[in-house]
């Protein structure tokens, strides 16, 4: 069940969603590889891949490392002459990112609910409550939309829109976290890798 809403990830993606939500990107990517095979993440649209470490032999150059809690995850530039692999399962990627959003929401609510402010907590400020609710409503809409997508409906344009909105929802949660969300070793690092997944695996919006 996602977002305590009655909207569920499809059965085939529940495990990915839960792994992303509860354990973070590296665990979710490992689950994806276990399900679709060791090359399931090789098909970045411009020759990149985002892989959980340890990744085994990598057919390319490691560009960046991302530490826990988002990782350990690496960004790889595959060798140019490698055979172009199939792109990863688009709905799987979507549900991983939605799971990461759910985890970010939980982390934000936990932190703001613990931080004292005046006689209460930061979470109980009207301004914060309204923004949390706004971010949550956006997440619910995204989850419902993703759950309703038939395979034929998962067009590039629709997927791009969904991923763009996931990024903006995550940014809303991060703003509520203040500077804590700017640390690489905190929820902001998780959101960073989530954005990277969309960046690497979504095709371009249009021909240029």
């Amino acid at each position: 069940m996602s977002a305590a809403t009655g909207v569920s990830a499809p059965p085939g993606h529940r495990r990915l969603y839960a792994a992303a939500r509860d354990e973070g990107p590296a665990a979710a990517l490992r689950a994806l590889l276990a399900r679709h095979g060791p090359h399931a993440l090789d098909g970045g649209a411009a020759g990149h891949a985002v892989l959980p470490e340890p990744a085994g032999p990598v057919d390319g150059r490691v560009l960046r490392h991302y530490p826990p809690p988002a990782g350990p995850v690496i960004l790889v530039r595959r060798v140019p002459d490698a055979a172009p692999p199939a792109p990863p399962d688009p709905p799987a990627l979507l549900w991983i990112r939605l799971g990461l959003t759910a985890g970010l929401r939980t982390a934000t609510l936990d932190r703001l609910g613990e931080r004292a402010s005046g006689d209460g907590t930061i979470l109980m400020h009207q301004l914060v409550k309204a923004q949390a609710a706004e971010a949550y409503a956006g997440e619910l809409e995204l989850t419902a939309h993703a759950a309703s997508l038939a395979p034929a409906g998962a067009t590039t344009a629709r997927l791009r829109h969904l991923h763009s909105q996931i990024t903006r929802t995550d940014r809303a949660w991060l703003r509520l976290l203040g500077a804590h969300g700017f640390l690489r070793t905190g929820p902001g690092g998780v959101a960073e890798v989530s954005e990277l997944l969309a960046d690497v695996y979504l095709p371009a919006e249009e021909e240029r």
Binding site: A46, S164, L196, D199, L202, A204, E205
Partner: peptide
Amino acid sequence: GCELLAPAARAS
């Protein structure tokens, strides 16, 4: 900017 330079704007 990342969307306009997709795919892989941040990676590339």
